[in-house]
Design a protein around this nucleic acid. Structure first.
Lengths: 201, 201
DNA sequence: ATACTAACAGACCAACTGGTTTGTTTGTAT
DNA sequence: ATACAAACAAACCAGTTGGTCTGTTAGTAT
């Protein structure tokens, strides 16, 4: 007589699905495997989610989005001088994230690459999340602009987008070859790029 | 009595498979669909390729690799001053590539993201191709270093890797939102980064 | 206590998927 | 002309996959 807990059941499915999607992609994720790992049955699954793709949307909104905000967006509020602090933030990142991230990269970008051209529902949701991320960066650069840490004529939006793109690009390359030196080298180049935003003294 | 042409049959399968992989990913590509589009039968397919994954390897080596060399590596030999010429090269790129690239991004990076953590055979091959690309860039930067276009202390390897990563990152973001302005903005930021490599005058 | 609904369990299914097998035809060396 | 291997065509197959259906049980309002 295990007492019922629908919220926990749902969360369990979401977390397991998140892991499986992260490891094998959305198309590679198997509903049966999620069920096996979570120790649940089809009935439970299709009671909580209408279809595989709806589960995918839920994972995106309820697992990936909060994780991104925790790891990438929240630390941004502490940044005063982006040229100095963003590289510092990146340095500490390696140890602030679980091993699964080192192995399988950024869950958001993985889904973006795999699904945004396959399904409009995914694309829209991913776009919104990327936008939130970008706006958070833009706020940092605008603030830094006012405080004279970077030049007036810097295009904060373009810089934000490029920083995110470069990060995702580097993380992506790590899938092919991942060594600690690669990550530090990547940091250095981001630092060089950010340094170019400094006002001419 | 259509005259037989095994080489052409093989090439036909490879090209169709390339398109399907580019559009749906390797896991999303269906052997049956490749057969339908190429107007061939199972017998033809499994005569030329041992399995789906072997076809994938062949597409990588015989379709994607040559394409990358044509579009990205060959133009590099004409580059004298990377700070000036790489942005220029990127500018002309948009019109030098087919529409499928705008829609589905870089076929190499797509496979890298999807398959390098799934299958070691893919990872190895992709790694080699990325390496070729990186070495081509490194040669450009080393040459530029000798000619005084960039600083002596520039880490050509790290810069090459970062340029490729940033490019792939930007192309990846385009899948989520692709407008011409996004591409020009990306170019500008790459130009800013490269500008930071100039010697201090 | 009763009725009713949410929350499952688990058998079942149709479509799909990569791969195999068998047979036939075409080119080619002898 | 004959033999033989390469190059296919096409039916076939077993395992998988997302999804459905029926039934059962736990919670909850009355």
């Amino acid at each position: 007589m295990t007492t019922r807990n629908p919220q926990q059941t749902r969360e369990r499915l979401l977390q397991t699905a998140f892991q499986e999607i992260h490891a094998h992609g959305f198309q590679g994720m198997r509903v049966d495997e999620v069920l096996r790992q979570s120790g649940l049955q089809k009935g439970a699954f299709y009671h909580h989610f209408g279809s595989k793709i709806e589960l995918g949307y839920a994972v995106l909104e309820e697992q990936i989005k909060p994780l991104l905000e925790l790891i990438w967006i929240e630390p941004l509020v502490e940044i005063e001088d982006p040229v100095r602090d963003i590289p510092k933030m990146l340095e500490s990142l390696g140890s602030r994230i679980p091993t699964s991230m080192h192995e399988h990269g950024c869950p958001l970008n993985n889904l973006a690459q795999e699904m945004s051209t396959q399904d409009e529902g995914f694309r829209e949701r991913i776009y919104e999340i990327f936008n939130t991320w970008m706006e958070a960066f833009t706020a940092v650069f605008e603030r830094a602009k006012q405080n004279g840490y970077i030049r007036d004529d810097v295009d904060s939006c373009a810089v934000s987008r490029f920083v995110i793109a470069a990060l995702e690009g580097c993380i992506g390359i790590f899938k092919v070859k991942n060594t600690p030196e690669q990550w530090t080298a990547c940091q250095s180049q981001i630092a060089i790029y950010l340094g170019a935003l400094r006002p001419v003294t």
